[in-house]
Amino acid sequence: MSTPSESGHEPSEPDLSAIVGERRQLINLAYRLLGSLAEAEDAVQETYTRWYAMSRQQQAAIASPGAWLTTVASRICLDVLGSARARRERYVGTWIPEPLPDRSEWISGRADDGGTEPADPADRITLDESVHMAFLVVLESMTPAERVAFILHDVFRYPFAEVAEIVGRTPAACRQLASSGRRRVRAARTPATPAVGQAVLVRDFKEAWESKNIEALVALLDPDATMTADGGGLVGTVLRPVEGGKSIAQYLIHIADKAPGLTLLERTVNGRPGLVAHHTGIPVTVAALDVTDGRITRIWAVRNPEKLRAWTESGEI
Rank of each mutant, 00 (worst) to 15 (best):
V167D: 05
V167P: 11
V167M: 07
G168A: 05
G168I: 06
G168C: 06
G168H: 08
G168T: 04
R169C: 13
R169H: 15
R169Q: 14
R169Y: 12
T170Y: 14
P171W: 12
A172K: 15
A172P: 08
C174G: 13
C174T: 09
C174E: 13
C174A: 07
C174L: 11
C174Q: 07
C174N: 07
R175G: 15
R175C: 11
R175F: 15
R175L: 11
Q176N: 15
Q176S: 15
Q176V: 12
Q176H: 14
Q176G: 11
Q176I: 11
Q176P: 11
L177K: 01
L177V: 03
L177H: 06
A178W: 01
A178R: 01
A178P: 02
S179M: 10
S179Y: 04
S180D: 14
S180A: 15
G181H: 02
G181L: 02
G181V: 03
G181C: 04
G181T: 00
R182K: 07
R182V: 03
R182C: 06
R182E: 09
R182S: 12
R182Q: 09
R183V: 08
R183G: 00
R183D: 06
R183A: 08
R184F: 05
R184L: 11
R184E: 10
V185S: 03
V185F: 03
V185A: 03
V185D: 01
R186N: 04
R186K: 11
R186E: 10
R186W: 02
A187D: 13
A187E: 11
A187T: 06
A187F: 02
A188N: 07
A188P: 05
A188D: 10
A188I: 14
R189L: 14
R189G: 11
R189D: 14
T190I: 15
T190K: 14
T190S: 13
P191R: 04
P191L: 07
P191Y: 02
A192F: 08
A192K: 04
A192P: 02
T193W: 06
T193S: 05
T193C: 10
T193Y: 02
P194N: 00
P194I: 01
P194V: 00
P194M: 01
P194A: 01
A195W: 02
A195C: 00
A195D: 03
A195I: 12
A195Y: 00
V196C: 00
V196H: 01
G197D: 03
G197E: 01
Q198L: 03
Q198G: 10
Q198K: 10
Q198A: 03
Q198R: 07
A199K: 05
A199M: 04
A199E: 03
A199T: 12
A199F: 00
V200N: 10
V200L: 04
V200F: 10
V200K: 11
L201C: 08
L201V: 06
L201I: 10
L201D: 00
R203T: 12
D204E: 15
F205L: 05
F205E: 02
F205M: 04
F205H: 07
